[in-house]
């Protein structure tokens, strides 16, 4: 047992996808989950029930004793938003690599070419990054980037503004300019289930203002983006995320990643991390 790792909430299923009981992995250990009538349950390998929370369309559990409630996203409750369960993608990489990639904008022109970015619009301007001690979360604000097709709902290229939030070690919430409603934020999240320290199941979820696209169009858009990310994530060496400086070289555009790695080290979150330069 390692409290710094076990005492967090982890996503383990999309609630709408739970029918028959099934097994999965959490932090390298077998768990089972299912639903009795209305309520979902999760058990560890010994049959002991684990705590659960049903939120953001997903079932969350913890192998430890979380000392705080699962984070909330109050903005997602505002009326008119469409809540999108994107599904899941299994990726052979550290759960931390998956989160770090989600926090990165500089790869858009090269990995999501002509969708989330395009040459020659590659420059990343300075933005603000902070570890908000009072809530123990990493935040990046005033992130701006030119995007040819920022969302399914975008009619053409726009400069998009982003805010990134890391409320838990394997989760991130992105607040992003909403093309049909300037002044509002679209919400896109990445909930990562650590199957093992080098294998994860990624559950993206969205709360969008988009009155025109069908649900399957919005899901397909996000799945396409994540499949492009997966081709990167499964080809990074090492698979684990190096937390010590020296093994990888950040620049100013990587300030969010630098803060994320520093925060993980500070809170002692080492699952999926590489601590000693190989």
């Amino acid at each position: 047992m390692n409290a710094a790792i076990d005492n967090h909430w982890y996503p383990v299923a999309m609630i709408s996808g739970i029918d028959a009981p099934r097994e999965t992995l959490l932090l390298g250990k077998k768990i089972s989950l299912g639903r009795d009538g209305g309520a979902c349950w999760v058990k560890d390998a010994t049959g002991t029930e684990l705590p659960t929370v049903e939120r953001f369309g997903h079932l969350w559990t913890s192998p430890g004793q979380p000392n705080r409630d699962l984070f909330t996203i109050p903005e997602a409750d505002s009326p008119g938003r469409r809540l999108v369960d994107v599904g899941s993608v299994k990726v052979k990489c550290s759960p931390l690599r998956a989160v770090e990639n989600f926090l990165d904008i500089a790869h858009f022109p090269f990995v999501h070419t002509d969708i989330l970015g395009a040459e020659p619009h590659t420059e990343v301007d300075r933005y603000d990054v902070k570890i908000r001690e009072e809530v123990d979360e990493v935040w990046a604000t005033k992130v701006k980037f030119y995007q040819p097709q920022a969302a399914k709902s975008a009619a053409g290229g726009i400069t998009t503004e982003y805010m990134y939030r890391v409320p838990a070690p394997t989760c991130s919430v992105l607040y992003k300019t909403c093309p049909p409603r300037p002044g509002e934020w679209d919400i896109i999240t990445l909930f990562v289930q650590p199957l093992t320290d080098e294998w994860c199941e990624v559950w993206p979820w969205m709360a969008l203002y988009d009155d025109d696209s069908t649900m399957s169009e919005m899901v397909s858009f996000q799945q396409l983006i994540f499949m492009q990310d997966r081709s990167i994530l499964e080809n990074q060496l090492p698979r684990k995320l190096p937390l010590d400086p020296g093994m990888e070289v950040p620049t100013q555009a990587d300030m969010t990643s630098v803060a994320y790695r520093r925060w993980l080290k500070k809170i002692g979150y080492t699952y999926g991390a590489q601590l000693v330069a190989a």
Partner: peptide, 27 residues
């Protein structure tokens, strides 16, 4: 070496542009 020093991405997935090799992750 098949590894970009920035984020560890395999350079063999990259692309040749002019007399340079570019990493596919961040170019």
């Amino acid at each position: 070496s098949d590894r970009c020093p920035h984020r560890g991405m395999r350079l063999s997935h990259g692309f040749v542009r002019g007399e340079t090799l570019a990493c596919i992750y961040h170019g």
